[in-house]
Design a protein around this nucleic acid. Structure first.
Length: 736
DNA sequence: AGCACGCCGACT
DNA sequence: GTCGGCGTGCTC
């Protein structure tokens, strides 16, 4: 049907630009059956941009004579299924972010930038003969050798449009030669045959079996909170829930917070379902590889897709289930640009796809616990560790009036020695990298602060530098106090970081085991973390000193002692989520202890052993303290008992942010919305910019989402808005 | 976000 | 007399 000649309407396009509006274009020059979800190249101001056709409107919002025409249509069909159109539409409304940018972030980079025509196009892969030939080597034909090696490295089907760049001139004849010899084959976009999955090789315990049965019984959309202590075997539950779906040719999408734990998870899925059925979208992939996985998922050729936050937008031909592992983790919330929560959007997507969604965690977010209590989520509990592993013993070390050695108490050092003497491994957790979080003048108390941030600089002893962890500033260590009236040369480190703990341990007599530091400084390059983890798996006695990095999801069977060096940070945090975060973090680290046969021990150093949170940690009781925190939130009217959004502003001068936020507060007229502030941001100055924010409270998330729209329109017109950089964060998790 | 236009200071 | 500062406005 030639729809352009009969002028059925005007194309509504979401241009890839940070603008909260759509634009109309004439549907020339191609006669086309226009469908929402196709990419188009359009004239935009002086330049050209890509955008997405959102729909066809009979009447444009301005004089049709002023409209420009679409320059090019890039795709023969919509890129995403209708469910994802609806999801992105919802996200635009809920987060009040420009639709064009939302689409841009949802698409693989190569499609976002228009560097790749959209599949279905021919994809090439190695045949068995090609693999054999590559093994044997092609000494007389180096180009063919290189060509085969490239496809092998791409692992999977490589779109033909990637070949010119990879193979260079004459790629066509190279392709035809290799194809003629049967070394490479064009992979037909066919659906895979339903898989026959062997029964589970591991016996599940009754808790796990119950959880699997509950999830499998779900018909269509059903949200579950899988609340299982560390080591309770949540992954095994995921595997068994997915297995029968694959036999029905359906697909599973698994989101994890951090790339560092994808390899381990990928291995387990690949071992269960076959490597060719499972793909992980991790940071080590090239853009071409990502696009290949995306296309294969879209065509239904992959059974399981594992990925981080952005993988939520992977199209699935036949979705069967969505799984969000470590659902409490804040990295599921994007912290810049389009600030979405992959966990919250996953629930929306599951509803749109009409499939079950499982949120798994040992330390569920208060939001999810609340949803479970309200009956919105089905609460599945795994209270015991799987296999023979038992939960670790937890002890609190009262630091008050104790002599400390670089932050370590004698009790902890003694336990460390005993652990190593038994031939076991120990893990010390301290969530600060560097040697010390500040340096201080011993004479007058002056602290070396960052010039551009309201924060002290961190001492890095190894490289002998002072660094700001907020803006990246890097200076030599001053020789003397910066106070002009003092100038004393006596500058002393204040507090502890991983580097200091490492050096204190090295200085201990008769402690002849390797000490391995794991933080962003120690394992800077790609693969270094994996290499370190590999070595740890070997099992020889050693001490691991590390930050967050060490805590997430890793399995260290030989670690029997976990020491938390300073649990008090966050106890009296200004952030209302401080306690929830501290509780989750310490319990996640504690969960690394004794995951195999040998029992584990956790020692927590604190100056506040009587604090209820410390008592909860000692009892390893997340649930009870989470209830306490929930009650507090209810009394204070904070999320999840209300909805929160944050208007954040940054400018060169403090008055500019305040003027803007005051103006913004004045524009607010909604009866159910309450503005609080302007308040200085937790870090008042960062990278030379002054920062302040306005908090917006509403009784319900729906009210908030709905009221924010007109308010933002008013804000965008404010003259003061132009003098600041402002962002809106709906459901903020980090308060910036 | 880009990219124009536009009106005021220190320079060849 | 111009080069260029960034305030203001627009992008179908």
């Amino acid at each position: 049907m030639n729809r352009s000649s009969s002028a059925p309407g005007f194309l509504r396009v979401a241009v890839f630009a940070p603008l909260r509006q759509t634009f109309h274009y004439l549907p020339c020059p191609t006669p086309w059956a226009w469908q929402p979800g196709q990419r188009v190249r359009v004239p935009f101001g002086k330049a050209q941009r890509l955008g997405i056709v959102l729909g066809l409107d009979p009447v444009p919002d301005r004089d049709p004579a002023q409209l420009k025409a679409v320059l090019e249509v890039l795709d023969p069909e919509p890129l995403l299924p209708a469910s994802l159109h609806a999801l992105l539409h919802f996200a635009a409304q809920y987060y009040h972010h420009p639709v064009g940018e939302i689409w841009a972030t949802a698409l693989p980079v190569l499609l976002r930038k228009g560097l790749m025509p959209f599949p279905p196009e021919t994809c090439w892969g190695l045949s068995d003969a090609g693999r054999a030939q590559l093994q044997a080597g092609l000494k007389r034909a180096p180009r063919q050798q290189q060509a085969l090696a490239f496809l092998a490295a791409q692992a999977g089907s490589t779109p033909e449009s990637a070949l010119p760049a990879a193979w260079g001139k004459g790629w066509k004849s190279l392709r035809d030669t290799c194809a003629a010899k049967g070394w490479i084959c064009a992979q037909a976009p066919e659906s895979r045959a339903p898989l026959q999955i062997p029964p589970s090789p591991f016996a599940l315990n009754p808790d796990q079996t119950g959880a699997v049965a509950a999830i499998q019984a779900a018909q269509g959309f059903a949200p579950f909170l899988l609340d299982g202590v560390t080591g309770s075997g949540k992954t095994a539950v995921y595997l068994e829930v997915i297995a029968p779906l694959l036999a029905q040719d359906r697909q599973a999408l698994v989101l994890v917070p951090d790339i560092s734990l994808t390899p381990q998870l990928l291995q387990r899925f690949a071992a269960r379902f076959g490597a060719s059925q499972v793909a992980a979208l991790h940071s080590g992939l090239t853009d071409i590889q990502r696009l290949a996985i995306w296309s294969r998922a879209r065509r239904g050729e992959l059974a399981v897709i594992i990925g981080t936050r952005s993988a939520l937008f992977t199209p699935l031909a036949r979705p069967g289930i969505l799984i969000i592992d470590e659902e409490h983790d804040s990295s599921l919330k994007q912290q810049d640009g389009f600030r979405y929560s992959a966990r919250d959007l996953a629930i929306v997507r599951a509803r749109l796809e009409n499939v079950p969604v499982v949120l798994g965690s040992a330390t569920p977010s208060l939001e999810s616990l609340h949803n479970a209590r309200q009956g919105r989520f089905r609460h599945l509990i795994l209270p015991r560790r799987a296999g023979n592993a038992s939960l670790p013993q937890v002890g609190l070390i009262d630091l008050r009036r104790q002599a400390l050695q670089g932050g370590l108490s004698q009790t902890l050092i003694k336990a460390l020695r005993e652990t190593l003497a038994r031939g076991e491994q120990a893990l010390l957790f301290i969530n600060r990298r560097g040697y010390a979080p500040a340096i201080l003048c011993h004479e007058c108390g002056w602290v070396a602060n960052c010039r551009r941030c309201s924060a002290p600089m961190t001492l890095h002893q190894g490289v002998r530098r002072l660094r700001c962890h907020h803006c990246g500033a890097d200076h030599a260590i001053p020789a003397q106090c910066g106070n002009p009236l003092c100038g004393s040369p006596q500058l002393i480190p204040l507090g502890q970081g991983t580097e200091q703990v490492e050096s204190v341990l090295r200085a201990l007599p008769d402690l002849e085991v390797p000490i391995q530091r794991i933080d962003r400084d120690a394992v800077r390059r790609k693969g270094e973390l994996e290499a370190a983890l590999e070595e740890i798996q070997q099992g020889a006695p050693r001490i691991l000193v590390g930050t967050q990095m060490l805590a997430k999801g890793h399995h260290f069977p030989q670690v029997t002692l976990v020491g938390i060096i300073n649990a008090d940070q966050g106890l009296f945090s200004a952030d209302f989520r401080g306690q929830e975060r501290l509780l989750a973090q310490v319990l996640q680290v504690a969960g690394r202890a004794g995951r195999a046969e040998r029992p584990g021990q956790v020692l927590i150093q604190t100056h506040h052993p009587d604090h209820p949170l410390m008592q909860a940690l000692r009892a390893l009781d997340y649930g009870a303290h989470a209830e306490v925190l929930l009650t507090e939130r209810e009394l204070t009217g904070l999320p999840p008992f209300s909805a929160l959004a944050l208007l954040h502003a940054e400018a060169q001068q403090p008055p500019q942010t305040l003027e803007f936020l005051h103006d913004a507060a004045r524009c607010l007229h909604h009866p159910e919305l309450r503005a609080q502030g302007p308040l200085p941001a937790p870090m008042e100055r960062r990278a030379g910019h002054y920062r302040a924010q306005l908090w917006l409270h509403a009784p319900r998330r729906e009210t908030l989402a709905q009221a924010l729209g007109p308010w933002l329109q008013a804000i965008e017109k404010l003259p003061s808005a132009r003098r600041v950089r402002w962002t809106l964060d709906v459901d903020p998790v980090e308060l910036l």
